[in-house]
Design a protein around this nucleic acid. Structure first.
Lengths: 203, 203
DNA sequence: GGTAAAATCGAACGCTAGTTCGAAAATTTG
DNA sequence: CAAATTTTCGAACTAGCGTTCGATTTTACC
């Protein structure tokens, strides 16, 4: 039973990846040096190349993890919902799941969003597909809600999706655990997006 | 009448600044090299130091311009509004002004938002004050609307502000002139934020 | 048009980047 | 515990970084 043929290496590899996410997030792609990443992982620069054969492969792994964590979490959360859930419920769950994931994986999420525009072209185009697939999941949530008549027929769902994702991704920049709960933020966001700020007409 | 004692130099300085904004946006702070910036400005690396005495001074100038353009535009737009304008009108104008500015100054705006987290600490804290003052302008728009009774008394305005600014800033990443007009985007955003996505209850 | 000033160049500086690789240490295996 | 393997080290390499500065060109002025 060879249940762990990658003991030491796997641990080290994970530490390198975590360190890389942190440093990429703080310093950007070019500013993150292999020596600093290695130092944060408790290694020397040369040793990194035993686990990843280049800086590009490292950033690629970080981008992968950052994006796939978010996609997987949303997929699982939606699958766990009862089939008769309202569109509003689905939207709220999606809000909460997205924010929870990018806060929990803060280093990776922030690294992903901050560094994406600076990465070598070849790496970027490869991850653009994954990004698009995530956008499609949100489009599905919104269009099905409109088809069920829960959302205004006149609402521009493409704009709604861009507004929502922009607002949610921005949370990673300002959210500090402790002051406000993720639940408060996401339910507050959902209330605005669903019902709007305007006071209801009084007659 | 010495109306232009800084002819040639001013032109060159502007070209350098424009080039710097573009390169910082694409490559991040560390990835933007003085040689590439110079090349984009039609100069050699050494010549940059005639206009700016260091890379830090260059990024600082880019950050200044990116932020002050947005602040100045919003201030002017609000001042141009009639005193009896509704909160909804004020909000729509603020939306349109913000997006228009960051699209028009795309290089500077994207450079500012992408590079801000990677800049040396001393430069960052200096510009954080300017950022905060911008946040205050939005807070004012929202609270005055609530005091006038146009916005729900129960609405969490802090969250609303964070949602709005997140969504608006994100436009710089996806908006491509030609496909959709800025007017469409901002009025669509305003409709969602004001009235929400939910279909009105039918009785 | 000649001259003083402004603007640019180009070579050089010290430093640090990503990466390589043989030697050394740590770990696993028989 | 010894041998084999995995993992880490540390020194070295080339390349490119930000920056400096005297020489050179371009511009503005009388």
């Amino acid at each position: 039973m060879m249940t762990k043929p990658l003991a030491k290496s796997a641990v080290s590899q994970q530490r390198v990846l975590d360190a890389a996410a942190r440093v990429f997030r703080d310093c950007g792609y070019a500013g993150a040096t292999m020596r600093v990443i290695a130092d944060q992982a408790g290694l020397k620069a040369g040793s990194l190349y035993y686990h990843y054969k280049s800086k590009d492969e490292l950033i690629s792994a970080v981008l992968d993890l950052g994006m796939n964590a978010t996609i997987g979490a949303l997929k699982a959360a939606l699958a766990g919902l009862p089939p008769d859930a309202t569109a509003r419920q689905r939207l709220e769950v999606a809000f909460r799941t997205h924010v929870t994931t990018i806060i929990a994986n803060g280093d990776y999420s922030l690294a992903t969003s901050r560094v994406f525009g600076q990465v070598p072209e070849a790496i970027r185009v490869q991850h653009e597909k994954v990004r698009d697939s995530y956008g499609l999941m949100w489009r599905e949530i919104l269009t099905s809600g409109q088809q069920r008549g829960e959302f205004r027929a006149t609402a521009n769902l493409t704009l709604a999706r861009l507004l929502i994702l922009g607002a949610l991704n921005w949370t990673a920049e300002w959210f500090k655990p402790g002051t406000r709960s993720i639940e408060d933020v996401t339910s507050g966001f959902a209330a605005i997006v669903m019902d709007g700020l305007a006071a209801p007409d009084q007659l």
